[in-house]
Write a protein that binds this DNA or RNA. Structure first.
Lengths: 199, 199
DNA sequence: TAATATCGATACTATGCGCCTCGTTAATTG
DNA sequence: CAATTAACGAGGCGCATAGTATCGATATTA
């Protein structure tokens, strides 16, 4: 799935897996330190102890590299607590931790903004976004199967209602998100989800 | 308030107001066309028919320029319909129109991501964000004064709950936002706002 | 008219981009 | 054990951009 590692089936020197990881790690470090705009392929190569050409052999440009590095960031793991509220609280607490501990909050908005002009990159980023939303979709589906939610609910819109407040909060106000706030946001969202019928 | 126009109080040739507008317009055009990463001061100068030095005389770098151009984008105008639902629907419809007709959706996430590494720029962007949220805050305050909402409501969090779903929807899924969806999102959010007490 | 400050144009160094060549190194295949 | 194959590091190349500096021309105030 990763663009950089097309394992060589035939003879010849194989691509270094260590270099691959070093490049992605350096990319994430540098994005966190200096931001996307100041990031350059040459800097990534220097930081990862790899030749500049090696990076270009695997990724055509800076953006796909950052997208793949982004895909290496931790994703949500969906626990099955038997009820929707606890599932959502657990998921959003994980999300808040990831936002606090990784450069996700710095990478994702920039990628989203840049992909608006590049359908190719958008096609690269879209499945990543979808994969990160999947655990929430599944938690909602389990709630539907338990009749906690009506069967005709709009799952995608529900995910937006649940994640949206936290995302905007950390994006534009830069506010810290505490566990108590997570519970309040979940409850706030849940009171409205029933209105999000699909028809 | 704008960084570029410090009107000359004494003698000497004053700064061209036309050039100022041309530069900001060209910046917005180029951001919409090629994105923030591909944007360069030289391109802005060429597009606006202005010398490169003129741009540097007014803005120290690319980011403050884009931030000021961003501040020129239309803001929300708060109507007073006498009830909260209609106020919010009107505001969010305006917001959806702005997202559709201007490069706001492409500029804002990139700025937010870049400002995460630069406190100086963050200080430049923060008041712009606050000003754009103000009409929603005012609509909520009117609702409180009409006893539509409890007086101890968390206004900022309420704004996040109302705007968040739309913002994430247009940011990460790129979905079109139709007027009907706006009404549903407003209703979805309103059912939960009462839980957002400030204590 | 004199003083002042911005203007366009241009040159300048430094750096990044993306591509390329080259000799070297590490794996598969016979 | 050789021969083949492919990725490797090092480094050069042309081009574009960043940001600064200089210059004479121009527009405004005193």
């Amino acid at each position: 799935m990763s663009a950089g590692t097309l394992p060589s089936p035939g003879p010849g020197r194989p691509r270094s897996v260590e270099a691959h990881r070093a490049i992605l790690d350096a990319t994430l470090e540098l994005v966190a330190e200096v931001g996307f705009d100041q990031l350059s392929v040459a800097r990534v190569a220097r930081r990862s102890g790899v030749s500049k050409a090696t990076v270009y052999r695997r990724w055509p440009s800076k953006l796909p590299l950052v997208i793949e590095a982004f895909s290496e960031l931790p994703t949500l793991e969906a626990p099955d607590n038997g009820n929707l509220v606890d599932d959502l609280i657990a998921l959003l607490r994980q999300f808040a931790e990831i936002l606090r501990d990784t450069p996700l909050a710095r990478v994702l908005p920039v990628l989203a903004g840049e992909c608006a002009h590049d359908p190719e990159l958008s096609a690269l980023l879209a499945p990543q976004i979808k994969a990160r939303r999947a655990p929430l979709i599944q938690a909602l589906e389990r709630a539907v199967s338990r009749s906690e939610l009506p069967p005709d609910i709009d799952l995608e819109a529900s995910v937006d209602v649940i994640m949206g407040p936290l995302v905007t909060r950390m994006l534009f106000t830069g506010a810290e998100i505490e566990p108590d706030n997570v519970r309040r946001f979940v409850e706030a969202a849940l009171f409205g989800i029933n209105r999000l019928r699909s028809d």
